[in-house]
Simulated scan of single mutants.
Amino acid sequence: MKTAYLLVFDGLSDWEPGLAVAEINKSNEYQVKTVGFKREVAVTMGGISIVPDCTLNEINYTDAAILILPGGEMWESDPVMDLVPVVRKFIGLKIPVAAICGPTVFLARHGLVENKSHTSNGSKYLKNLIGEYPGSELYLNQPSVSSNGLITANGIASVEFARDILGELNIYNTETLESWYNFFKTPWLDD
């Protein structure tokens, strides 16, 4: 069974990866494990307490399927240096990395979007926080972008983010994935 690693930390935006991890965890091929900077309780922005299953140093790359980086205020002010070699290793091993909202700042800050199409909370959001960055010309003004194993999304695109993750992991066939997406994005009307 392959593992989807979800980074957990104090103040993470718990709603952003919610749909993706729920669907991943329901599959028969993947399990979700939480990974923290340390093995201490992380309290999400919504007040949920999570004890990480492992630390960054304990990631098993041989069974890793994806690394999911949810948003939170930490990303805007902290360069998150402990995470740089981990993300570089995922990318080097061609294991997908998915970032929604704030961690797109982390990726751009550390040159990890240099050759990949990507998105964020707006190109001005990135430039205001970090200035010009390698790959800024590949920015796309879209809710979510999947490009060569890197998935990026803006903070209000959790459904698109989940769709791109589920597509990357081939959890559903194309038709089922489209139906899944439409279920969450199309307003339900009583007829």
Rank of each mutant, 00 (worst) to 15 (best):
Leu169Thr: 12
Gly111His: 05
Thr186Met: 14
Asn57Phe: 02
Gly11Val: 11
Asp63Lys: 10
Gly155Val: 07
Val80Glu: 02
Lys116Gln: 14
Ile24Thr: 09
Asn25Leu: 14
Arg88Asn: 15
Tyr172Ile: 09
Pro85Asn: 10
Val113Asn: 01
Ala20His: 03
Asp191Trp: 10
Phe183Ser: 10
Tyr181Met: 08
Thr62Asp: 15
Asn170Phe: 10
Val145Asn: 05
Lys38His: 06
Thr104Gly: 06
Gln31Gly: 13
Ala157Ile: 07
Asp164Gln: 14
Pro52Trp: 06
Lys33Ile: 01
Trp75Tyr: 11
Cys101Pro: 00
His118Glu: 11
Gly47Phe: 12
Ile68Gln: 02
Leu93Asp: 10
Asn121Asp: 13
Ser179Phe: 07
Phe184Ser: 09
Val80Ala: 06
Asn182Val: 06
Ser147Glu: 02
Ser179Val: 06
Leu129Gln: 09
Lys33Pro: 00
Val32Met: 15
Lys26Gln: 08
Pro85Met: 08
Thr44His: 05
Lys116Phe: 13
Glu160Gly: 09
Ile50Asp: 03
Ile130Pro: 03
Gly36Met: 07
Val105Met: 13
Val97Met: 05
Pro17Glu: 14
Asp164Leu: 11
Asn128Ile: 10
Ala65Gly: 09
Phe90Thr: 00
Arg109Thr: 04
Asn148Gln: 15
Cys54Tyr: 01
Ile59Lys: 08
Tyr61Met: 12
Met45Pro: 01
Ile95Thr: 13
Leu67Ser: 05
Lys116Thr: 11
Ala162Gly: 11
Ala162Asp: 10
